[in-house]
Design a protein around this nucleic acid. Structure first.
Lengths: 206, 206
DNA sequence: TCGTTTCTGGACTGATGAGTCTTGTTCTCC
DNA sequence: GGAGAACAAGACTCATCAGTCCAGAAACGA
């Protein structure tokens, strides 16, 4: 294995990512990928075997990379105000989801659902499912610390998650990247969701 | 215009709908549509002009048809319990959205976003946007009747909408039609959303 | 029944794109 | 410096598909 071989491989994945994410599977050609990353078409085939295989590898890698980009919930520091913790986590999650490349990946995978249900299932597990599980863990801790009045943390996590994500994700899916909210808008979205959440589940003040 | 001509046209749209919704735009051929509806390819072209035009007409018609399938909120009958009204409307909306053909349409349009942003924008307006506006109207009435404590009915409507729709829509987008909830599950989903909503915005009892 | 319009069936064109093959070149390691 | 692997460049095969063309059959209106 030549060292330059790996570089070419990375360059190919990068070009493939850009093209697949921006125009979908069908309308991308192996020639255009080869041209963009300055590599012979044959090299693509010797590295990945087929267009489909390249696509699968790309999407899988991107899915995993995105999962890693979402931070874990912060440790619970004694009995401080629970809201800032939830607020920070939700802002981080929403900001990650609202990035153009994550949105494109989501659109791409949804469009390919019939052809590659495994990709979509993986994205579901690594994305929203995982986010909600993380959220549920934090919510359960807060409940145990007496800061929330909640029966089913998992359900509450899902509700809070979609209270935050529903509108922005739906808009971005159908209206494109111009509908991506700014940082202050993201904060406002999280804050108004938390108002509802704490009005429903909060114990003490506010 | 021959009467049989219209029938052929309808048959063509039906076959096109089935095929486009189940496998996406690119992988459908004019030959396969012609074959399925028992019509010569030339007839398709004389009716619709091109594959793209057929697709656009199909999706537009289907979008409008779906909008019409969602019932309007019922009239406010004096000062009864507000919950059954919201409950009935939300169940109807969620049930409509959770039908296989509506879900497929949504997936299809999302996958074609780069190629046809107008279609996606139209779906957004006729679908979620419209549902939320309807919901906001009802919520505003309930607020005026003293049943809810709410500043911004439109925002509250969006929150309630995604409290109900978020989880099921996301699952159906990524996990396919096997993730469609049953009727009792739909009711349970609406009920648990309404619990949160009324805990946050309700005035009196409960 | 006659003339017109519409449909059929299938052949045809032209373009495109996945995947292969060939020839020669450039690395890397020994 | 030489052997073998990985690469470049591009020609080539083969299949598919949108859209056209045409000759004949069928349906319609008057």
């Amino acid at each position: 294995m030549r060292p330059s071989s790996l570089q070419k491989r990375e360059a190919a994945l990068l070009a493939a990512e850009r093209q697949f994410l921006s125009t979908g599977y069908e309308s991308v050609t192996m020639d255009s990928i080869a041209k963009e990353c300055g590599v012979a078409k044959q090299t693509l085939y010797s590295h990945f075997g087929s267009k489909r295989a390249l696509f699968l590898e790309l999407v899988t890698a991107k899915t995993v990379a995105t999962r890693r980009a979402v931070p874990s919930p912060p440790a619970l520091d004694s009995a401080g105000d629970p809201r800032p913790l939830l607020r920070a986590l939700l802002i981080a999650q929403l900001t990650t989801v609202m990035s153009p490349s994550v949105l494109s990946l989501r659109r791409l995978v949804i469009g390919e659902l019939t052809r590659s249900p495994e990709l979509a299932a993986a994205l579901y597990e690594q994305g929203p499912r995982r986010a909600i599980v993380k959220l549920a863990e934090l919510i359960a801790e807060l409940r145990d610390a007496g800061a929330l009045r909640i029966d089913d943390p998992e359900r509450a996590a899902s509700q809070l998650n979609w209270l935050v994500m529903g509108e922005p994700v739906n808009r971005a899916m159908l209206l494109g990247d111009t509908a991506i909210p700014s940082a202050p808008e993201i904060e406002a979205q999280v804050d108004s969701a938390l108002e509802v959440f704490f009005a429903a589940f909060g114990t003490g003040g506010d």
